[in-house]
């Protein structure tokens, strides 16, 4: 086979594999390695994720966030922190879903952060894609996060995790 055909086949296989993988993991809430020392909490509410107790000296996600975005307000029950950027089509869908969840449920706040304006925060919180949604508990600790646009059900399923982390 000539190199042109080989490259064509490789490119299509790589793209299809990557696309299918992304379709599977997009919007799925899971613990983040940096904030969860042990264990993957997965999507279900079963294991209470080990949060900041492991690393008490580390500032919480909210402390980092409010240093960069001073006027943001923490929700009484939970806060949905969405990182967005200009060249990001799914950010728009995510904004609609999260704003709607925040409006319909008491004590839930939605904070949208422009990743380009807050690159230091993006690095500190290890945000790699937009949209990325962090779910913070009432103390402002990160409980779980999802990269890619989450569906409403996925957001609602992640919210109870904030009750367990106290």
């Amino acid at each position: 086979m000539s190199p042109g055909i080989v490259i064509l086949v490789l490119a299509v296989v790589a793209a299809a594999g990557f696309g299918l993988h992304r379709r599977r993991v997009d919007g799925r809430f899971a613990g983040h390695a940096r904030t969860h020392a042990a264990g993957e909490p997965g999507t279900g509410p079963a294991p209470a994720p080990a949060v900041a107790e492991d690393v008490p000296h580390e500032p919480s996600a909210w402390e980092r966030l409010s240093a960069s975005v001073p006027h943001a307000e923490l929700g009484e029950r939970a806060t949905l922190v969405q990182f967005s950027s200009a060249f990001c089509a799914p950010c728009r869908t995510t904004r609609v879903v999260l704003a709607d969840v925040a409006e319909r449920h008491d004590g839930i706040a939605h904070v949208e952060v422009d990743a380009e304006q807050h690159l230091a925060l993006v690095r500190e919180l290890d945000v790699r894609r937009t949209p990325t949604t962090l779910v913070l508990d009432r103390a402002g600790r990160e409980v779980t996060r999802a990269a890619g646009a989450p569906r409403r059900e996925q957001v609602l399923a992640a919210l109870p995790l904030t009750e367990e982390s106290r």
Partner: peptide, 22 residues
């Protein structure tokens, strides 16, 4: 490379260039 990006966009509505941006 261009084929990978075009395929992802056409088949999955996924914008590779946009993601590389951040």
């Amino acid at each position: 490379f261009a084929i990978v990006a075009a395929f992802l966009n056409a088949a999955f509505a996924f914008c590779l260039g946009c993601e590389m941006y951040l």
